Amino acid sequence: MKFDTAYSLSLDDKLSIYDVRDLNFDETADFDSDQDSFLCPNDQCRAAFDASNALSTFNAKNVNYLRTPHFKNKTSTRHIDGCRYASTHKTASGESDDEREDNFPSEWVLARRQYVRKPPLAGTEGDIPKAPAKASSLRVTASPGNPDSTPDKTSVFAHPVECFVSNIDDKDKLKSMPLKIGEHTATYWTYFKKIEYLQDNKGLIYWGKIKAIKDYTSSFRIDFEKKVWLDKKPYSVNVYLSKKLIDNYRKRKAFLEQIKAAVDSERALYCFFYGVTPELQQVPSKKNPEQTFGVFSANIENLDHLIIREAPGLE
């Protein structure tokens, strides 16, 4: 059985698998999921066992992934009777149903979640608690009154993107699941807008197949395959990632590893981004600087809100 939330022993808090990935690549965070222990998110179940009753992670440290990240039970993991995280069945191949993200957050919080490592109790430094007896204080609030509910908020862009990508074959589901961003709520289907239709509305999550990534050594430009039609004319679309943006990014190493691999990749890659809407600009021609041509372009402002990935099934 797969699930996307677990209790982190080192942070004394419940984390989604996307929080764990975010922390693993964050160069400003003192965190390594391999050195942590993840326990059942059900408070009553977790309290019934000691800290050795841990879960395992899947795709917690891969920069690029195709199969949905998740926590899962080890063969030795135990649960109390009635815990919904107990393994009840496996697929014919012996693997859990890890091809689809089923935990849809109803809100994507644009402000990055702060993970505060809590100090040990006096006189217990170096000791590992044997059984967390009560629910930890949550920075991402779960549904009230349900001790094992999955938090319905996320601050990690990869989570709603994975929900969209892995459920692309179920349009009815995407059209029924709500997503709140800022003060606005729409369905997942409405919020994710193909790049060629970016003129339909602003403030959406735009996505499209990448035609090419231009590597300028310290900056990059992502060109999209599809064009935008305006006044019966096609215009190219691109987004620009500046040197300053990349140099100041807290996950700089992981990002550079990913985008440099993408530059040389022959596989179909897609780009998702939020926070800017490409606008029609007149750009000087390289061959004749006195002439200009139109292109829809935007400077990305936050790399936390941009993803480059494979996405089988989108087109």
Rank of each mutant, 00 (worst) to 15 (best):
A6T: 01
D12A: 12
D12R: 15
K14H: 15
I17G: 07
R21E: 10
E27Y: 08
F31S: 04
D32F: 08
F38A: 01
F38Q: 02
C45Y: 09
C45S: 15
A47E: 11
N64A: 03
N64P: 03
N64Y: 03
P69L: 15
P69T: 00
T75R: 10
S76C: 08
H79T: 11
I80H: 11
R84M: 15
Y85D: 10
Y85G: 07
S87L: 14
S87C: 12
T88P: 05
T88Q: 08
T88E: 11
T91K: 05
E95D: 05
D98T: 06
D98S: 08
E99C: 01
E101V: 03
E101Q: 08
W108S: 01
L110N: 06
Q114F: 06
Q114H: 09
R117C: 08
G123N: 08
A133F: 09
A135I: 04
A135L: 13
T141E: 15
P144H: 11
G145C: 10
N146F: 15
P151D: 07
T154V: 00
V156S: 01
P160K: 00
V161C: 05
E162Y: 06
E162W: 02
E162F: 03
F164Q: 08
V165S: 00
N167M: 04
I168W: 03
I168L: 09
D169Y: 01
K171E: 09
K175E: 10
K175Q: 12
S176W: 11
L179Q: 00
L179C: 09
E183P: 00
A186S: 06
T190V: 10
Y191A: 10
Y197F: 10
D200I: 02
N201M: 13
N201Y: 07
G203Q: 14
L204T: 04
I205K: 15
W207H: 13
G208Q: 08
G208I: 01
K211P: 02
K214N: 10
D215L: 06
T217S: 15
S218A: 13
S218Q: 09
R221V: 06
I222K: 02
I222T: 00
E225Y: 03
K226V: 03
K226G: 02
W229M: 10
L230F: 08
S236G: 11
S236K: 07
S236N: 05
I246G: 05
R250I: 01
R250K: 12
A261Q: 12
D264Q: 12
R267E: 13
R267D: 14
L269R: 00
L269Q: 00
C271V: 14
V276H: 00
P278N: 03
Q282T: 07
Q282E: 09
P284D: 11
P284K: 02
K287V: 04
T292R: 11
G294H: 05
V295F: 02
S297N: 14
A298T: 05
N299L: 14
N302T: 01
N302L: 04
L306H: 00
I308S: 05
R309Q: 12
R309W: 04
G313M: 11
